[in-house]
Amino acid sequence: METDHSEEIINRLAFLQDRFESQEGYTIKAKAEEVLEGIGFKTSDLEKPLRTFSGGWRMRVMLAKLLLEKPSLLMLDEPTNHLDLPSIQWVENYLKTYEGAVVVVSHDQTFLDNCISSTVEVASQTLTLYPGNYSFYKEEKVERMEIQQNAYENQQQMIKQTEKFIERFRAKATKSNQVQSRIKALDRMDKVHEVVNDEVSVNFKFKFSQKSGRDVVILDQVSKAYGDLVILKNTTARIERGDKIALIGANGGEKSRVALAKTLISEANFLLLDEPTNHLDFQSVKF
């Protein structure tokens, strides 16, 4: 006699459907598309194989994967390196409402100001917490350094006075108790360290052996395309000596510090820099 398993199968199916729904199985594709388009992908890009994209765009895919996983602790290392401005703004808004904790390592000061609620400084083998964004940290650090330096100078003055007293009355028997008391006080003293400014600046000087003419580059009805991807079409532009021009838009590009250093010492009178700050720290960016 055959056993009717139809009810058991239906219950099992209902259980699996509930589980699939609870894990966002029905909405994950739409959410993935929302995240990918938010960080710069076109709708037509979503069906393309990952191998067809450049390294920068692949990094965006990895970022999207992390955001979709929604871990309780999201750790991002330079998340804005390969993003254009609209994509950065999208990530900022996403992180503002992120339910879990977020730890970000970044040199993008505007991004940090817009996203974070506390800052941890790593300096002198110590972690120091500042309860605010990057701008707050900069202001608060200056105040803390001033307080610490004043405390250090006051303590140093007191130490010198105490040492003078010890040297002056060390040989006097009538002052031996006071001398010993001051010696013990110095040994027990919690020393205030002098402020050490570890923000070493990086200085570059651009040199060129031959001065360019007034017109460095003239574009007249210039077009450029990579297959079906049109970069320029009938473009006219003029770059004069001394111009500083930023190209803003989607890109997939990455330059190392070595390549940047090589460029800086080349003595060229016309520089084209692609995301030169991507892998620099704050001090290097400021040059």
Score class of each variant (00 low, 15 high):
241 R>V: 02
217 V>M: 07
205 K>P: 02
176 S>D: 08
285 V>L: 04
225 A>I: 02
14 A>I: 09
271 L>Y: 10
60 R>Q: 10
128 T>S: 15
165 F>V: 04
270 F>S: 14
172 K>R: 14
93 N>G: 12
272 L>Y: 02
152 Y>M: 00
210 Q>N: 06
264 L>A: 09
153 E>P: 08
231 I>R: 07
60 R>C: 08
35 V>I: 14
275 E>M: 10
90 W>R: 00
140 E>F: 00
218 I>G: 03
7 E>G: 09
116 I>G: 02
11 N>H: 15
52 T>I: 14
125 Q>G: 11
8 E>W: 05
92 E>G: 10
275 E>W: 10
234 N>H: 06
144 R>S: 08
36 L>E: 00
258 V>E: 15
19 R>M: 07
243 D>T: 05
144 R>I: 01
247 L>Y: 03
253 G>L: 01
1 M>A: 15
54 S>G: 15
271 L>A: 01
150 N>C: 10
81 N>K: 02
187 D>W: 01
121 E>Y: 09
96 K>W: 04
32 A>L: 08
74 L>K: 00
202 V>N: 08
103 V>Q: 03
270 F>V: 09
229 L>R: 10
149 Q>D: 07
245 I>M: 03
142 V>K: 12
210 Q>M: 05
58 R>C: 03
72 S>C: 08
95 L>C: 07
207 K>P: 06
126 T>P: 11
280 L>D: 00
26 Y>S: 03
